Amino acid sequence: MASFAVLFSHFAILLLSVLSLGSSLSLDYYEKTCPGADFIVTKAVRAAAYKDKTVPAALLRMHFHDCFIRGCDASILLNSVGNNIAEKDGPPNLSLHSFFVIDNAKKELESYCPGVVSCADILALAARDAIVLSGGPTWDVPKGRKDGRISKASETIQLPSPSFNISQLQQSFSQRGLSLDDLVALSGGHTLGFAHCSSFQGRIRNFSPASNVDPEMNPSFAASLRNMCPVNNKVKNAGSNMDTSPTTFDNNYYRLILQKKGLFSSDQALLNFPKTNNLVYKFASSKEAFNRAFVNSMIKMSSITGGQEIRKNCRAVN
């Protein structure tokens, strides 16, 4: 069996061949062909978030998971067909939800300006709206992405894992043209949402022969997580909120890391390298600095392109 390092190396070559920073993207891409595109997407996101407060976190995570595989090409939205298991059915994506929000926006856009707005652009706009509706900053989203035709669950192994250390995180982000600054800023997206026990179980029990609990985790925090995630847990959706204000986009995530209350190993790992450590302290002390950095990094990440068509249905290739 090929080692993870070999698999990662092969996938890095694939990434370099199919991904590019979207030089063709522009802020006014739909100005003449579909001038109401932004508003239509925003309306769909608002309607869904009004009924379900977990929608914004789901849309943000969906966009991130999309961009990290083959670029921001909406491959995460494709359904499995025949013998092909799509990304959304890969293990890291099984808890993703709110795909209907993109479907609703696409349906209205197809009525208003058929065949014009890509599913990838809808998802990028929806992620921005998710942040705004959660109390975060807004920004103009560059548009003009195309939708991809390939979606493979086997490639989701390349998504950054909750158990990654700082070296693995740096490698994962750099393969996509993203810096350490982007790593720390985008990790702040963990200020929204919920995580299942399986994502952090290894930190709170039988961590190592020398320690039952990860020594980088606050002992009282670990104890509270063990109560939420008992041994032989049979509660389907047991887990923990990502931070103390899981529906509000703020900088509490960084403050909790400084208290050794980062939920994932990959969160706490940000303290283990001088540059990322400094950025955690900076963002913990200044929400404004975090907001600025997050916007810059979101624009950078969402400008990684790789698609080929404008899908009529976001769940299927044309």
Rank of each mutant, 00 (worst) to 15 (best):
T244W: 00
T244M: 01
S245L: 08
S245G: 12
P246R: 11
P246M: 09
T247C: 02
T248R: 07
F249P: 03
F249W: 06
D250L: 00
D250F: 04
N252M: 11
Y253A: 10
Y254V: 14
Y254W: 11
Y254F: 15
Y254R: 04
Y254N: 07
R255S: 06
R255Q: 14
I257G: 00
I257F: 01
L258D: 04
Q259W: 00
Q259T: 09
Q259L: 13
Q259A: 10
K260E: 07
K261Y: 06
K261G: 08
G262C: 02
L263T: 07
F264H: 13
F264A: 07
S265P: 00
S266H: 01
S266R: 02
D267L: 02
D267S: 11
D267W: 03
Q268I: 14
Q268S: 15
Q268D: 10
A269N: 03
A269T: 10
L271P: 04
N272L: 14
N272I: 05
F273L: 15
P274G: 02
P274I: 02
P274Q: 07
T276E: 02
T276N: 01
T276Q: 04
T276H: 02
N277A: 06
N278C: 07
L279D: 12
L279Y: 06
L279P: 13
L279R: 14
L279M: 14
V280D: 10
V280A: 13
V280S: 10
K282I: 05
K282F: 03
K282V: 12
F283H: 04
A284C: 11
S285Q: 15
S286M: 05
S286E: 00
K287V: 07
E288G: 08
A289S: 15
N291A: 14
N291T: 01
R292P: 00
R292K: 13
R292Y: 08
A293D: 08
A293S: 14
F294H: 15
F294K: 05
F294S: 11
F294L: 12
V295Y: 03
N296R: 12
S297M: 03
S297R: 00
M298Y: 09
M298K: 11
M298N: 10
M298A: 14
I299M: 12
I299L: 11
I299H: 05
K300E: 04
K300D: 08
K300F: 02
M301E: 15
M301Q: 15
S302E: 15
S302G: 14
